[in-house]
Amino acid sequence: MLKATNLSKAYSVGSLGREKFYAVDNVNFEIQEREIVSLIGESGSGKTTIGKLILRLTKPTSGKIVFNDLDITMLKSLKEYYKHVQGIFQDPFSSYNPIFKVDRVFDMVREEFYPSESVNSWKEKVTGVIESIGLNPKEVLGKFPHQLSGGQLQRLLIARALLMETKFLVADEIISMLDASTRIDILNILVKLKERGLSVLFITHDLSLGYYISDKTVILYRGSIMEYGDTEKIFNNSAHPYTKMLLNSIPSLHQKWSNTDASLSGRSAPVGYCKFYDRCPLGDERCKNIELRKVEENHFAACKNV
């Protein structure tokens, strides 16, 4: 359904912008219909940039993104694309223009995509969708963003996406700013939507959230994919040292941290080496030009030991 090929995004850095910094470096992945894929990475891994590239909020330096046979990489008119591909961002309070009521995000959709719809029938649709995601329209409509909770605001944005013919949703850290007790309900809504035919790219730094909801997992480190495949396989039979280190560091409620330390080694990765070389306990001169290799069916990892 959506396929990214050799996707890269570079920023100019250094004096006079002569050096290039690759936020996303030659990334390939594919997302099928009715599939939730988690894109897991720490800060600076390029996960948010990938989300923005898909939403065409920024253009790639090279590579392409194809959505249902349509190459959107350099597409001029995006309106039709946005009817089907939508996004929700991390900060619910910054997603709404603070001086307008929250209803405005729905009005905007009508004005831009369905101008022929009458105001009244649109209102009915909005109310229906809001109810379908477990909110009381009377409690949320007509309010200013700061009068609602982060959870309510994020749900309203899900409702907004549902008002369109959304087939693909980019959910960028959408629950990381919410309270633990209300987070899980939003995840459950996403899964229900998937069952109704939606595909989701679930961007997160939290492995347990990714494990809870996704069918496939992509592990990203410094702009490159370290491991990729079925979620169960990645978590239960991880092949990449980076994935293993992440799994080792998650605090769990049932198991204490093992003593293998997650400290940083000082060396830096030379050009062409695996991005994780700087922290990898197994790093040596063979860590050069590593591509994704097959571990088993639907499970790939970029490590020399595979």
């Binding site: 007790s181 899980i184 899964v191 909801i213 998650i250 409620l253």
Partner: peptide
């Protein structure tokens, strides 16, 4: 009971 953990899937 609302906290997901690795090992708990939807």
């Amino acid at each position: 009971f609302s906290l997901p953990e690795v090992g708990i899937r939807y």
